[in-house]
Each structure stands twice: as structure tokens, then as C-alpha cells.
């Protein structure tokens, strides 16, 4: 027998030349139908008033070529934002992108050009989502995709109303990754920016895989550097849907804060390196050296698994931690706090 040497040859993965056999025409037609199906549930949101734009228009072509980012006085975009009709009686889910401007008036315009005054019902600071309410009946909600429909490698069509209510802005990419940003967001290669924050990420079947949000890998709100960079984030449908009833009641949802610094090299259970004084962890009696092995039903072995498990919860949620200290094992129930400095 001859051993294959260095290059692994002849191990054909997948159908040969799958890419070439692909029917671009079918993909194009299906993309357009998917857009059509979702479009009626995608609204424009105008946020008026609030912080003034600090922008000086260039006076010549050369000045314009320099780019606005290089210019002093640059501030956040003021154009229309995008939202999703989530219930026919006037509930609109969108991103918190425009809230940063502290607008005085919110006006929602549906696909047919009808405008409504909106009120802010609640916001989710962990996922950069907010829920608006307008006085309307008979709106057409979007269709959410089932959780199992969300797979890496699926096509993902991003839609937005950043060009105004009468123009749907379309870009297409794929689902690039899951469980990003503390396990809260999916990642897509579609062009994502203020043009479509708050808009849907749509499957070929015309179902909403997730809602586009201005999260960034550095934490905080996405800045202009990552607009349309091929790295954009969306809150998966299942989490967005779960947040809606809480948003409609709670006002502000904050990320759940435990108050431990995990050892990054933890392998079998998350070893606690530090505990913040006064934090929920400290109050529950956790100490450096303790090992967290599960959050609720979710076993955690590595630091990122703990972050993802906690990321599913908000401040005020009660969680059950399985902890071992030496040979001792116990279960603690504690209430997550809000991160220090969050909100006002």
C-alpha cells in the first residue's frame, strides 16, 4: 500500500464543482421574491430633533473625496432607520441606533407611505433592540424563521429603509457565524450599516433570520469603521421574539452582570480569578478559586461558555450556578445585577 504523503489528495469533499453547477438565475429570482415577501413588514423610522448634527458640507469635489470621516465635527448618522412590524396592532421592533441622538419625535412610515407617531415602549441594552408602539391596526408583521433554520452558510439578505420609506435597500451575504458578541448575535457578511440597522436579515424563503443591530466586536455601538465591512451582526429571531413581551413591559432591559473574572485558561469548569466587590457573585459568597461548572442546565467548561450562558440573561434574572470549591459542590441561586455604570 502506498501512503498518501503530505498533500491529502483524492479526498473529495462535497459534490465536485458544486459552485459551478449552481444556478445563479434561480438564486436571483428567489432573492427577489424573498425581498417582496418581507418588504411589507419593513418600516421606515424617522427620529426628529435631539442632538444636532455637527456636519460641514465640503465646498468642492476634492473636499468631498477626502471622506466625511476624516472631517472634524463628524457625528452619527441622522437619516431614516428601519424597523420590523412584529404585530398587526402597531408593535415595531427596531435597533437602538437612533436613540443615541435622543430624538424628540419618532415617526414610523409603513411600506405604503402611511406615517404614524410612535412611542418608545422599551429597550434592550444588551442586544441593542428597542420596541416602538404606533396607533395602528392591520399592519402586516414579518414572518420569523424557526430556530433550526439559522445555519452558517445560508444566504442572508439584509433589508433597510435607510434611503427612505419608498426604497428598500438590499444587500446580500451569508450567515458567517453564530454565537458572537457574548453569544448574543449572529454574524453576517451582507453589507450592514445605518442603511439597515433595525431591518431584517432574511432567508431565501423570505423569513426573518434575525434583526440587524449596531453591535460591534469592541463592545458598544458599532462605529463607521465596520459599516459594510462584511462583518455585521443581528439578533437571532428566537432571541428577538423572546425579548418582545419583556420589552413591552419592562422599559429597559440591561445585560445580566455576575461580577466574576474567569481564568481564560479554564478547561474543565470555569475557574474564578477575581470577584468584584459588592457584585451579585460576591453577595452570593463566590470566591476566587471557585469553579463554576454550570449555569442552570447549561454545563460550562471554558470561560467563553460562561459568558455565553450569562449572555442569555438580563439584569434582574434569577440564575442557578453549580459551583465547586475543592471537593465541595453546591448550587447557588442568585439574581444578576446590572453592569456598573449601565443606564442612569
Amino acid at each position: 500500500m502506498r501512503l498518501t504523503c503530505f498533500a491529502v489528495l483524492g479526498v473529495a469533499l462535497g459534490a465536485p464543482l458544486a459552485a459551478q453547477s449552481r444556478d445563479e438565475g434561480a438564486l436571483e429570482r428567489v432573492t427577489k421574491r424573498a425581498i417582496e415577501r418581507v418588504a411589507v413588514g419593513v418600516v421606515e423610522i424617522e427620529a426628529l430633533g435631539g442632538l444636532e448634527e455637527a456636519f460641514q458640507a465640503p465646498t468642492n469635489e476634492a473636499g468631498a473625496e477626502e471622506g466625511i470621516l476624516a472631517r472634524k465635527g463628524f457625528k452619527q448618522a441622522y437619516g431614516p432607520s428601519t424597523g420590523l412590524v412584529v404585530r398587526e396592532d402597531g408593535w415595531i421592533l427596531t435597533s437602538t441606533f437612533f436613540l443615541r441622538r435622543k430624538p424628540r419625535h419618532l415617526i414610523v412610515t409603513t411600506h405604503d407611505g402611511k406615517s404614524y407617531l410612535a412611542t418608545l415602549a422599551g429597550q434592550d441594552e444588551a442586544r441593542a433592540l428597542c420596541l416602538l408602539k404606533v396607533q395602528a391596526k392591520g399592519l402586516t408583521p414579518v414572518t420569523w424563521a424557526a430556530p433550526e433554520a439559522l445555519r452558517v452558510g445560508r444566504y442572508a439578505i439584509a433589508l433597510g429603509r435607510g434611503l427612505g420609506y419608498e426604497h428598500l435597500a438590499v444587500s446580500r451575504g451569508i450567515v458567517s457565524g453564530l454565537n458572537r458578541i457574548g453569544g448574543r448575535a449572529l454574524q453576517s457578511s451582507a453589507a450592514i450599516s445605518p442603511m439597515n440597522y433595525g431591518g431584517p436579515l432574511v432567508s431565501l424563503e423570505g423569513e426573518v433570520l434575525g434583526i440587524l443591530v449596531p453591535l460591534s466586536m469592541q463592545g458598544g455601538q458599532a462605529s463607521v469603521e465596520i459599516y459594510d465591512s462584511g462583518i455585521g451582526f443581528a439578533i437571532p429571531a428566537v432571541d428577538a421574539v423572546a425579548a418582545i413581551p419583556r420589552l413591552s413591559k419592562a422599559g429597559v432591559l440591561r445585560p445580566g452582570f455576575l461580577g466574576v473574572v474567569p481564568d481564560p485558561l479554564s478547561q474543565d469548569g470555569v475557574r474564578i480569578a477575581q470577584v468584584s466587590p459588592g457584585s451579585p457573585a460576591a453577595q452570593a459568597g463566590l470566591e476566587p478559586g471557585d469553579t463554576i461548572t454550570a449555569v442552570g442546565e447549561r454545563a460550562v467548561e471554558r470561560a467563553w461558555q460562561l459568558r455565553h450562558a450569562l449572555g442569555a440573561h438580563y439584569a434582574g434574572d434569577e440564575v442557578e450556578l453549580s459551583v465547586s470549591r475543592g471537593t465541595e459542590r453546591k448550587t447557588l441561586t442568585l439574581t444578576l445585577g446590572a453592569p456598573p455604570g449601565a443606564g442612569k
Binding site: 421574491r33 452558510g153 444566504y155
Partner: peptide, 24 residues
Amino acid sequence: DADADLAQALEDEARQVALVARLS
């Protein structure tokens, strides 16, 4: 035709998903 297109596109997409999963 639309159904046929969708079936075709979803089949290609499923291949892409499987490929990506394996390559990952």
C-alpha cells in the same frame, strides 16, 4: 417555476451549508 427556483436555490444553499460545516 417559482417553486422550482426555490427548490433549486435551497438545494444549492443546503450544499453550501454542509460544505461550510465540514470545512469549519
